[in-house]
Amino acid sequence: MSAKPSRLNRVLMALVFLFLYAPIFVLIVFSFNDSQSRTVWQGFTLRWYVELLQDRAIMSALWTTLLVSLLATAIATVAGTMAAVGFFNMKKRWRGPILTVNNIPMTNADIVTGVSLCLLFVAFFAGWGDFTRWFNSLQGLVHLPTRLHMGFGTLLIAHLTFDIPYVILNVMPKLRQMDKNLIDAAQDLGCTWMQAFWKVVLPEIKPGIVSGALIAFTMSVDDFVISYFTAGSATSTLAMVVYGMTKRRISPKINAISSLLFVTVLTLLIVVNVREARQEKALEERKL
């Protein structure tokens, strides 16, 4: 598009970014506030950061959040890419309806996804209880646990359920854009299909896989509603801890953990961006 941004446009954009970042700025500033208050400045302190590190509940919630997001992203990336390859090779008659179902977790309201999975897990656990009681009474060799609870496992399943569609959504267009002759050429030149996949297809669709993984991770980290209904009472993500606190009083430790998260992500993004810019520059120079 032609580049002719006026000054007014720039000002408007700056205002929108101010709107997006003002609350984050406030959050960070008050993480250094020497008081429980979240609105009155009482002087500088680092004590919330020290207390944060000693707070077992928040640290374990942080750990749960990171672990479930990373695990879900890794598994969803592999599973989603595999599924996308499968869909791509599927007859259109089948692909259409299946892709519609695949879209459900993305378009459905989070709360509906959350409560529906919750109902499923509860029903499954009830059925499992009946089955194991019958099974245990039948023989004495293997004793199966009769009571199962929602926890990290169900949380992970829930995250996978809404992460995988995003990966598929990002990988499918890249498969469609790919020149199909490439695979034939590779196979004509003696590659097996698997080799062709690793050496030809994968590099072609890599941008889609990367952006799919990135979006899956973003969705996992940002999620609260679905986790809330599927994590059970013993497992908590960071957002659930915050939500629990809103009923009583939110500790400035939450400000501290938010600031740490924000700075980490910002640093990561800057590093990635600088590296990409450098690579692009090198590429351009080589072209010249």
């Binding site: 970042y21 609350p23 915050v242 939450i254 924000f262």
Partner: peptide
Amino acid sequence: MLIMLPMWMNFLLRTYSWMSI
């Protein structure tokens, strides 16, 4: 990037910040 970045802080944290504003 700047538009995506806030999403990496969970939305509950950002909403909580609006309370104090």
